[in-house]
């Protein structure tokens, strides 16, 4: 029984990390159909900014979280203005936005990655933070991993509440269902659209900042996270904040148990297996109505 609990807890924590990674892309792709394939690169940028602030200016990585979010948010507004505004404005349908933004995302991927290579080099980087174990009911977990898990749950619930119960959330959902209709009822999509995109980048930045406390970082770390994020938001249902969290946790649980009872080498097989199973049973994802 102890082992089962330990496996479950470990899986949930890993799943929390997946959920954090996916949240930003869920806003951009899930809600706005902007297929930001460079999501992982902005996550990487958040990780580097945090690492840089911590190792150069001794800034506490936790205190830097809001700064990472703010910087990436502003960058998001700029990227939106430069790259995506035109696409969104000129595209005749959501499908076209998806296809065109995919190409722009590829370009951004190279830009951001190479900018980081130029600034900080290709070496592995990292710092040690909150690596002490925390003991809960006899099982031991890393404090930094617990922190990521806590943030994942907290941020997901906050986002869920925001989208469901506030006027802003209603406006965002309206904009997704019908951009023109939203404008007709007085929603300023010209402001809301870039803000939601920027929020997506800010979440990516925070995820990167959190991950830099757990893992070693390098400029090429981003791409696998983009894939993970895509799996998680597809599992949960595009645009669903609860789905994102549950999708991440489910993936973490399946991997933890699978890796224990089968073999860690089956990790990929397991994650794609879950994805395929969900897609067959519920093609719209777990939480999409």
């Amino acid at each position: 029984m102890g082992l089962l609990l330990e496996l479950a807890a470990g899986g949930l924590i890993a799943g929390g990390i997946y959920a954090v990674v996916a949240m930003g892309l869920n806003l951009q792709y899930g809600l706005m159909r902007i297929m930001n394939i460079s999501h992982g690169e902005f996550l990487m940028l958040g990780a580097y900014l945090t690492w840089f602030a911590h190792t150069t200016f001794q800034v506490n990585p936790l205190l830097f979280l809001p700064a990472a979010a703010g910087l990436l948010f502003l960058l998001g507004l700029a990227v939106y203005g430069l790259c995506f505004r035109r696409i969104v404005r000129t595209a005749p349908s959501l499908e076209v936005i998806e296809a065109r933004s995919l190409l722009v995302g590829f370009g951004l991927m190279f830009l951001v990655q190479n900018a980081v290579y130029l600034a900080w080099g290709a070496d592995l980087q990292g710092y040690s933070f909150l690596t002490q174990p925390v003991e809960i009911a006899g099982a031991r977990f890393g404090a930094n991993r617990l922190l990521v898990f806590g943030f994942a749950v907290g941020a997901s619930l906050a986002l869920l509440a925001l989208l469901r119960w506030t006027l802003v959330g209603k406006a965002v959902r309206a904009m997704m269902q019908s951009p023109t209709g939203a404008q007709l009822v007085g929603i300023d999509t010209g402001v809301l659209h870039p803000v939601v995109f920027g929020a997506g980048l800010a979440l990516a930045g925070v995820a990167g900042a959190l991950l830099s406390m757990v893992y070693v970082i390098s400029p090429s770390m981003g791409e696998p996270y983009t894939v993970t994020a895509l799996i998680v938001i597809t599992l949960g249902g595009l645009g669903s904040a609860a789905g994102c969290l549950v999708g991440g946790l489910l993936l973490g649980l399946v991997e933890a148990f699978g890796m224990h009872y089968a073999n860690p080498s089956f990790k990929m097989l397991l994650s794609y297996g879950v994805l395929i199973a969900v897609l067959i049973a519920r093609p719209q994802g777990l939480f999409k109505r």
Partner: peptide, 17 residues
């Protein structure tokens, strides 16, 4: 002995065992 794939993000289950 256990194998694991490149890019693994969590090996707690194996290490616990």
């Amino acid at each position: 002995k256990k194998s694991y794939p490149i890019g693994v993000k969590d090996l707690a289950a194996v290490l616990n065992e």
